[in-house]
Amino acid sequence: MSHPRPQRPDSQDARTQELSAGLDRVHARIAAAAEQAGRDPAELTLVVVTKFFPAADVLRLAGLGVRDVGENRDQEAAAKATQIAQLADRAGLIAPRMHFIGQLQTNKAASVAGYAHLVHSLDRPKLARALSKAAVAGDRELGVLLQLGLDTDADAAQGRGGLPPAQARELADLVAELPGLVLRGVMGVAPLNAGGADAPDAATQAFARLRCVAKELVAQHPQAGLISAGMSGDLEQAVAAGATHLRVGSAILGSRPAHG
């Protein structure tokens, strides 16, 4: 979703200019994909994946109008959320909303529930109950997406943390009953071989499966219309398949920095 860009923290900073150019390229890709699919680009929310990048980059992104960022490790995300809030306040900027997009251990649920705007990776009942308990304790409502395994090999899908699509309805019904949680939709990651020479249509087929499950869930849970799909390499296929949220990192921020 496009937003007017606030004053940049430092419009002459080389890193800010690099991020601005990356954002422009990705927004152009999204606009072209939306036009090709007959969709309005305003329907799409760009979640800039900032894992392994410093809070200073998130502040720069905030200055460039980014409203949503994604993290996948609680230890990093929790500390960064605090830093970003402080830095943004000092700079007079709106801190981006943080999306938790990685596989989540149950013992980290309380921490994540304290700062996440939306959890994209709910994939099992035990985690749902832990997030519910934490949200209630924090007196807040937490939006969640069901992460579905999109590999045609069920074992491989489970190994990557995704719920088998056949079990989506059962988990969705459970989430709908749990206090503190709001089922917002589904999330999926294309198989590792998607786009490769041996499987050029793998992403398209995977996102089609995701959309099929999403339609079935919305019929029973009308508020669950979000579809989180698509990354730097396959955002066009995701837009064509009806994605509402695109998780893009390297195409904007560049190669990941060294990390521990």
Rank of each mutant, 00 (worst) to 15 (best):
R5A: 10
P6D: 04
P6S: 07
D10K: 03
D13W: 06
R15P: 08
L19T: 04
L19A: 13
L23R: 02
V26M: 08
V26E: 09
H27R: 15
A32T: 13
A33P: 07
A37T: 08
L46S: 08
V48A: 11
V49Y: 10
F52D: 15
F53A: 08
A55D: 11
V58T: 09
V58A: 14
V58G: 04
V66S: 06
V69T: 01
R73E: 12
Q75Y: 12
E76S: 02
E76T: 06
A77D: 06
Q83E: 14
I84R: 01
A85E: 11
L87H: 07
A91S: 04
A91G: 05
A95L: 00
H99E: 05
L104G: 01
T106N: 06
A113V: 14
A116C: 00
V119L: 02
H120W: 07
L122C: 00
R124K: 08
R124Q: 06
P125Q: 04
L127D: 00
A130K: 02
S132E: 06
S132W: 04
A134N: 02
A134G: 01
V136R: 01
A137Q: 12
D139H: 11
L146I: 09
L148S: 01
G149W: 03
A154D: 12
D155N: 15
D155F: 12
D155G: 15
A157Q: 05
A157P: 07
A157I: 11
G159C: 13
L163F: 09
A166N: 14
E170C: 00
V175I: 05
E177D: 13
L178G: 00
P179V: 02
G180Y: 00
L181E: 04
R184Q: 08
G185T: 05
V189F: 11
L192H: 15
A202V: 04
T204V: 14
R209S: 09
L210V: 09
R211K: 14
V213C: 05
E216V: 02
E216A: 10
V218S: 01
A219N: 14
P222T: 03
L226S: 12
I227E: 04
M231I: 01
M231P: 07
G233E: 12
G233T: 03
A238P: 01
A238V: 03
T244I: 11
R247W: 10
R247I: 02
S250E: 12
A251R: 02
I252H: 02
R256A: 10
A258S: 12
